[in-house]
Amino acid sequence: MLSMTLVDGSGPRNHDMGTTQSRADRDADFSAYMSARQPALYRTAYLLAGDHAGAEDLLQNAFAKLYLSWDRIRDPQALDGYVRRVMVNENNSLWRRAWKRREHATDPTSGTLPETSTHDDYDDGTGGALWSFVQTLSPKQRAVIVLRYYEQLSEAEIADVLGISPGTVKSQASRALAALRARAPHSLDPRGPGARESGDTR
């Protein structure tokens, strides 16, 4: 479960109260966590943001907030979840800033690949094409897709990360897959046109 436990400065890492840990120890702990988890969390950031500059910005911001909250997160198992939550929320809100909004195909049914399209060496380009189409989804839908199919979180866990209900997660996933079906070439969709859109069967 990704939910984190926040405590009011009385946790075992608390240094402000001068009870247990010095700033140096705290920084060492944080540095060790960063070293261990940065590559994996960077991958999630990249899938959310869609580019390296955006991924670095998301991850740096999330690590900074984690750093500020380090003494208040009691459960070490919750650290990744906290970083993910901050990245997702930040990406959603960044999207709300028009200047961060990505340009994408305006006709969702055109099947035109976005400019960022890459071709994959392993699957005749369909993987790269799908990745390109994922990037055209709204940030919330993309977050649901990334958390569901990359992080492989349950609907309840995704709901916890996004701060929405499991039902909304289900509907967002369904809409996202429907959008991908609409945008992707029919060759990517074994169900063909008019197929059932719910799809979240994993």
């Binding site: 999630t44 899938l47 994959d120 990745w131 994922v134 897709i145 990334v146 991908l180």
Partner: peptide
């Protein structure tokens, strides 16, 4: 396919 595409990309 989405699962595989995301993992390959990442």
């Amino acid at each position: 396919q989405v699962h595989d595409a995301l993992h390959r990309e990442a």
